[in-house]
């Protein structure tokens, strides 16, 4: 069976991309790396287990979710909105980082990562969690469980997870509106 190309358009980090002529069976991570030069998403296991490749899918209803780009075809994203690790920090016109997202900032402050390979996935997962908590705050006594649940599937070979956990907890506890009763 020959590989057919098809036009593909989507919104990545707020910018319209495409239509580009993209092979039918290409996985999203390869599309990001090879077609739009967004190389920040990491290919780890390539089979949906480690979550290093996780990007954020923005649903039309305003919710966001993690999506594994290594096992999701690029054409799945036709007409959809996606955010990658490159889309979190504020950049100036020259493309230089002028301000990190809150999650990124706290990951730095807490020395959350070492080699950094898993970090894009963790940043995206934590961001999805924060956005979810904005819509549905949790009770204070559920915070720890909620964070564990949100990050549990992500694998990190270096850190032992504690610092990731602490960074995310820092954000959750200190961002108004994520925990019930907080202002």
């Amino acid at each position: 069976m020959s590989i057919a190309n098809k036009p593909l358009s989507m919104t990545i980090n707020g910018k319209a991309v495409g239509p580009l002529n993209v092979p039918d069976g290409l996985m999203m991570i390869d599309f990001l790396h090879e077609y739009v030069a967004l190389t920040g998403s990491r290919l780890g296991c390539g089979q949906g287990v480690c979550r290093a490749c996780v990007a954020i899918l923005d649903n039309p209803d305003g919710t966001s979710e993690e999506i594994r780009t290594c096992i999701t075809g690029a054409h799945f994203f036709q007409g959809k909105k996606v955010r990658t690790i490159e889309g979190h920090a504020k950049l100036n016109e020259k493309g230089e980082v002028v301000e990190l997202s809150q999650i990124q900032q706290k990951f730095l402050e807490h020395y959350s990562f070492q080699c950094g390979y898993c970090t894009p996935g963790f940043v995206n997962a934590a961001t999805v969690l924060v956005e979810k908590l904005k819509r549905q705050p949790v009770d204070k006594d559920q915070v720890e469980e909620t964070i564990t649940e949100a990050l549990n599937d992500h694998i990190c070979r270096c850190t032992g997870y504690v610092r990731y956990y602490e960074a995310v907890k820092d954000v959750v506890m200190n961002t108004p509106g994520l925990v019930k009763g907080s202002k």
């Binding site: 039918d24 069976g25 054409h75 799945f76």
Partner: peptide, 10 residues
């Protein structure tokens, strides 16, 4: 199309 989008990766 659906298969390539969400199944073929694995």
């Amino acid at each position: 199309q659906l298969y390539t989008a969400v199944c073929a990766g694995c």
